[in-house]
């Protein structure tokens, strides 16, 4: 019956690709920062290229992400009101503070790493990669407080990566987003998935930024572990929610983008890479990053298109 008069149906997609990309970039930023800062903190003579890549990537990613977020606001110029009107019951309100602090810390950390690189570059003159990196590490050690920044930043990076999951899972009226860990009511699922994905994509993006360098095996092994965990989580998700969420146009995004490109292929490539090509990161890491984006898009859209 065309009782076609009256208002048409509202567009079900309220948060579109801008928000999906923002969530993805926040994940990248958190993951990259963690990669860099943990290397910095725990690995003596850590790979300076990795630290640099992660430290620079984090602020860029989070600022671009925040830019998208602000652009998506109905009133972009009033974004500052988020800081002055606080609702402690709102995940977003808390998230604003976590991300704001993280952004500041990531900038500070990037500055510290940058200055140390400058110091380092003065010390060494093209004597080879090893000398360069050793010098950089030394220089890093010379800058006081960088460790503290790295440590605090890591905490907030963890917060940022997890927050993006909480942001969606807190929407209790959205059955997909608010899915719980199977068997554990009250513990939302998405924060775990997004954290693992953030770590995985952040690490992958950092490695891409680091380019070819000496033995990255340890990172690659971590990545494999992360991918395996993520596969498990995605499997759990698939098993615990209704099949409708994986149907329609989103089926391709899920099976091709999330599962094949984001998980299976990189896993195979990484396994192959670890055993054969120690320094080859480009193919596998690129796929992980693309897969991370696909995952955010999938989750954001599936939750809204099928209610």
């Amino acid at each position: 019956m065309d009782i076609t008069w009256g208002a048409g149906a509202a567009n079900p997609v309220i948060w579109g690709w801008l928000i999906a990309v923002y969530l993805f970039l926040a994940g990248i930023a958190g993951g990259a920062f963690l990669t860099a800062s943990l290397t910095d903190l725990f690995k003596k003579n850590g790979q300076a290229r990795v630290i640099r890549s992660g430290a620079f990537l984090a602020p860029v990613a989070i600022i671009v992400g925040l830019g998208l977020l602000v652009f998506d606001l109905g009133r972009p110029l009033s974004f500052w009101k988020l800081i002055f009107n606080v609702n402690f019951g709102s995940v977003m309100s808390i998230g604003v503070f976590i991300i704001s602090i993280f952004t500041v810390l990531s900038l500070l950390y990037a500055y510290l790493v940058w200055t140390s690189v400058k110091v380092g570059s003065k010390v060494q003159v093209r004597v080879g990669r090893a000398a360069n990196e050793t010098a950089a590490t030394k220089a890093a050690g010379t800058v006081g407080g960088r460790g503290i920044v790295a440590f605090l930043g890591a905490l907030f990076a963890l917060g940022t990566a997890t927050y993006t999951g909480f942001l969606l899972s807190a929407v209790s009226t959205n059955v997909f987003w608010s899915t719980h860990l199977p068997g554990i009511a009250g513990v939302p699922f998405l924060p775990f998935l997004f954290l693992v994905s953030a770590l995985s994509t952040g690490l992958a993006a950092t490695l891409l930024g680091a380019g070819t360098c000496d033995d990255l095996t340890v990172y690659k092994k971590i990545d494999i572990v992360l991918i395996v965990i993520e596969i498990l989580l995605v499997a759990v998700l698939y098993a615990s929610v209704r099949a409708v969420f994986f149907s329609g146009n989103l089926a391709a995004l899920f099976w091709l983008g999330v599962v094949m490109i984001g998980l299976i292929l990189p896993l195979l490539l990484s396994l192959y890479g670890v055993s054969r090509h120690k320094n080859l990161v480009l193919p596998s890491c690129s796929l992980v990053v693309i897969g991370g984006l696909a995952l955010r898009c999938f989750v954001v859209y599936a939750g809204q298109l099928f209610k």
Binding site: I14, L73, G74, R75, Q304, K307
Partner: peptide, 15 residues
Amino acid sequence: KCVGCKYCMTACPYD
């Protein structure tokens, strides 16, 4: 006070 973040819209089950 509203900045137009649309979080409420995603939360409202009644559109």
